[in-house]
């Protein structure tokens, strides 16, 4: 073996790498596996905001419903740790190459100081997660996925020695992430789309319900702000940003756009699968009134971060109320329509 690359693909779902990685593996198989698309559109519906951000910072301030997205019908996952690999006295590079050879991608943390194309390469030590999806044993290079030095979620490479240093460095720098997860795609997985479940979850989002209460039998509910109420949290964040009382975090405005883009893809899927009457134009209206607006707001905020024009931030804070109202009205109408339509035999629409 000289060159081995497992299938990965960049996707909409990428604000945080902990879910971007498993999803990147899944979506690379989406064309051959219809269930993957059904699963994707049944997830990433709920949004949650961790208000502890305002008390000093949290690693995941604004994100999809917190869940291990590797827990899906297609990924066989092995959950290991740096501690276990150390206990077994495994050479990390040999372990990585063997894992890849057995069909696994690896999700682990490494020190960006040693990884070319990463934000902190040769600048400062920083433990950050990375996905290893391939190897060239002749050239002694690993193929990696993650955020690059331009904050783009993409693929890049690192030499064996660079990666070994990046891995070993976590023994001496601050690091809270000791996971070594192995993901292997299993094509035999299956998933059937359930329209009522998806509509229920969209209503959770619309009425800001705590979706984690649905899983009380597993664990205590997460204390977060949920659904459309998260837009008020974003407004509060922007207000503090404008006043210079909180640091700029691109993930917050990026996730706002990601959530709207995911909902737009979901509406197009529902139209394509005839759960919605396409002639009513739900997806097109959402694209214009909600997704397009969110995209503009993100770019306005990014521009303000560069040219320090706080008036633009103030304008976004005010406009988010209208976006919230437009989204609410449209999704309420959509859910009502979809429920009425789901009550009729599907052949009526074919």
């Amino acid at each position: 073996m000289t060159l081995l690359k497992h299938s990965v693909k960049e996707s909409t779902y990428r604000s945080y790498q902990y879910y971007a990685f498993p999803v990147s593996i899944l979506v690379s198989h989406m064309e051959q596996n219809e269930g993957v698309e059904a699963w994707i559109h049944s997830n990433f519906i709920q949004a949650c905001f961790d208000e502890r951000l305002f008390d000093g910072g949290v690693p995941v301030p604004f994100a999809p419903y917190q869940f291990d997205y590797a827990f899906n019908p297609w990924l066989h996952t092995q959950r290991l740790s740096r501690e276990l690999v150390g206990m077994l006295d495994l050479d990390i590079l040999s372990f990585i190459v063997k894992s890849l050879t057995h069909g696994f991608c690896l999700y682990l943390n490494a020190d960006e100081f040693f990884l070319p194309n990463r934000q902190f390469y040769q600048k400062q030590n920083y433990s950050h997660d990375v996905l290893i999806y391939g190897v060239d044993t002749e050239q002694e290079r690993l193929f990696l996925m993650g955020y690059d030095d331009n904050s783009q979620y993409t693929t890049f490479e690192a030499g064996y020695d660079e990666f070994r240093q990046a891995y070993q460095s976590l023994d001496v720098i601050e690091n809270h992430c000791n996971q070594i997860y192995l993901y292997r795609y299993q094509p035999e997985g299956s998933y059937t789309f359930q329209i009522h479940l998806v509509l229920d979850l969209i209503e959770d989002y619309l009425y800001s319900r705590n979706t984690s209460e649905r899983l009380y039998m597993v664990a205590e509910p997460y204390d977060r702000t949920y659904g459309q109420n998260t837009i008020a949290s974003v407004q509060r964040y922007l207000q503090l940003l404008m006043e210079g009382r909180i640091e700029f975090d691109i993930r917050i405005i990026h996730y706002l756009v990601e959530h709207k883009e995911a909902m737009l893809h979901r509406l197009r899927y529902l139209e394509r699968k005839k759960y919605l009457d396409q002639s009513l134009g739900f997806a097109d209206t959402y694209a214009e009134q909600v997704y397009g607006q969110a995209l503009m707001y993100r770019n306005m905020i990014m521009k303000s971060a560069i040219d320090n024009n706080s008036k633009r931030v103030q304008s976004v804070i005010g406009s988010l109320d209208q976006m919230r109202q437009d989204e609410h009205e449209l999704l309420v109408r959509m859910v009502t329509h979809a429920r009425e339509r789901a009550a009729k035999p599907l052949q009526e629409f074919n």
Partner: peptide, 13 residues
């Protein structure tokens, strides 16, 4: 991409 495009806009302005 989105970030470098906004940087370019500011430079153009």
């Amino acid at each position: 991409h989105s970030i470098t495009f906004v940087k370019l806009v500011v430079q153009i302005e």
